[in-house]
């Protein structure tokens, strides 16, 4: 359960996300993230909630889409500090 706050992750779709907040629920990590420009110099306004999934040693990130999970995460994840 690594702390990835303030890290920039690059995903297989070549998108870059800056991880603002991390939450752990049922031993799974969830992040509030904001998309970063390709040159990593600016934050966009595209925020999202990501769920870290570990499968056979590979790490995947999926967008959180379950309404209740979104509500729960956003209830406790405040403005970026």
């Amino acid at each position: 359960m690594e702390n990835r706050i303030n890290k920039v992750i690059k995903l297989s779709d070549n998108k870059l996300y800056y991880l603002l907040k991390q939450a752990v629920y049922n031993n799974d990590s969830y992040y509030t993230a904001v998309e970063v420009t390709d040159d990593m110099q600016a934050l966009t306004e595209e925020f999202t909630l990501l769920h870290e999934i570990n499968e056979d040693g590979k790490i995947f990130f999926a967008k959180v889409v379950e309404p209740k999970m979104i509500q729960m995460l956003l209830k406790y994840m405040k403005v970026p500090e």
Binding site: K7, S12, M40, Q41, A42, F60
Partner: peptide, 17 residues
């Protein structure tokens, strides 16, 4: 579009961000 995407790289965020 919400299918999981594999993590390619983890980078330290620049100070600007």
């Amino acid at each position: 579009d919400d299918t999981p995407k594999e993590l390619i790289e983890i980078l330290d965020a620049p100070q600007e961000l």
